[in-house]
Design a protein around this nucleic acid. Structure first.
Lengths: 235, 235
DNA sequence: TGATTATGACTGACTAGTCAGTCATAATAT
DNA sequence: ATATTATGACTGACTAGTCAGTCATAATCA
């Protein structure tokens, strides 16, 4: 089935420019604003969005390998061939989803966090996680990265460099300042910021596997996590 | 491709009994020790083991959907048809692996833990995790459950009931006794024992996705985790 | 303005290939 | 001798990706 790194020898090269635009509007060599420059372009953008949404739904429900392009097309209300006008192949479509859904979110983490107590900042992060990730489709996207990432090394690497590494760097900066201010007793969390995010990941995995018969109160767990993180459990 | 819940309409029913034995050796109605009571049975058991091992390798490397039975057969040094003598279908083979590799381990957790300080017990658990799971093939099996579980609801449920639920129950019992002994300041961990295991899961996911270019010192992270768990990070 | 031509987005039947599972035949043990 | 176990060529179901052709819309002309 050629699951990984597929590239049918003569794949839709034609579609490449469309598939990786730098936002077409800006890059064009000036078609000097004739009439409505929109109708065609607008429709195109809408179709593209429909395809991405359809693909996200299907990938979320079935995973990469088991998703049929025909089903994505049906969901997007589009013919199969149309998808190949917008995306090179199944894998490119998959990458697009992951990229567009997750990368923008990192900016939030990197925004210079106010010098309020770390605990307050981390508490806000956790609220953000619950509201903007756990409760949204982004949760599915992250789950997809975790479940399919091992089979798509470039995707995993891209995700690491553009999401994980940046998030960790931001977190480290924050923690380091807090440490200097004397808000942390040592550098444990600075060395392993993963410890802060681990329960969030646990929540995503848990909900994907066990939610049906063992629901989890994620908000409460996150609160318990933060309490533990700062106060510990020893009396 | 019929990834999920596949069952070619007329699948190898013949093989069912063989595929779910209660360990043939024990259950047999006494074949009263002729000469070598072994040759046939032993060979059979060896083949079975070879198949399971081959399947584990392939599934670990490629995931369920992308694994070809032909490759499993090749790896096991066996013809394709032979696999269907031992297992009903691809899914049964997959289940077998998960079951036999993980279930036995739970017993260790359930063994009445000595009434030493919780911290010591949990430290031992973490060492056990690193030595018996993280550093072994079991790590791949758990990763498989996490990555494929969502597409195999029965598998996820089986795994929950036979591994996760039992581990959590054992952990809760342990924590409750510790709480009564005054070793915990409140019931946070009792309500969310997931918080104890979260970094272990993080380690498994991380190693699967990012190990290549961002290795993680799991032992050190686990030590940091335990320190945090009990002492917290506030000065 | 309205008629005519050009464009390229869209379609879906089709190709080329994959792979789980079967079964007639062969090998082997008792 | 014959029951059991193993083999691997084969089948049939299924799907990613292609491409020749259609048609709504845009551009151009009269």
């Amino acid at each position: 089935m050629r699951t990984t790194t597929s590239r049918g020898r003569g794949s839709a090269r034609r579609a490449f420019r469309r598939s990786h635009p730098v936002r077409p509007a800006a890059a064009e060599p000036r078609p000097p604003a004739r009439k409505r420059p929109t109708n065609r372009a607008a429709k195109s953008e809408a179709r593209r969005a429909a395809i991405v949404q359809g693909a996200l739904d299907e990938f979320s429900a079935r995973g990469f390998a088991a998703t049929r392009i025909d089903d994505v097309a049906a969901r997007a209300g589009v013919a199969k061939g149309t998808i190949y006008l917008y995306f090179d192949d199944k894998e490119a479509l998959f990458r697009e989803i992951v990229t567009t859904m997750l990368v923008p979110l990192v900016a939030t983490l990197e925004a210079p966090p106010p010098d309020v107590p770390v605990r307050a900042v981390i508490t806000r992060f956790m609220e953000l996680f619950v509201r903007e990730i756990y409760a949204t489709q982004r949760c599915n996207v992250i789950r997809l990265v975790m479940t399919e990432g091992a089979r798509f090394p470039e995707l995993a690497e891209f995700h690491y460099r553009n999401v994980v590494a940046r998030a960790i760097a931001a977190m480290r900066a924050l923690l380091t300042r807090a440490h200097e201010r004397g808000e942390l007793k040592d550098d444990r969390l600075i060395r392993f910021p993963q410890l802060i995010a681990a329960p969030a990941m646990m929540a995503i995995v848990w909900s994907g596997l066990f939610e049906r018969f063992a629901p989890l109160d994620v908000e409460a767990m996150m609160r318990a996590h933060i309490d533990t993180l700062f106060e510990g459990c020893a009396p």
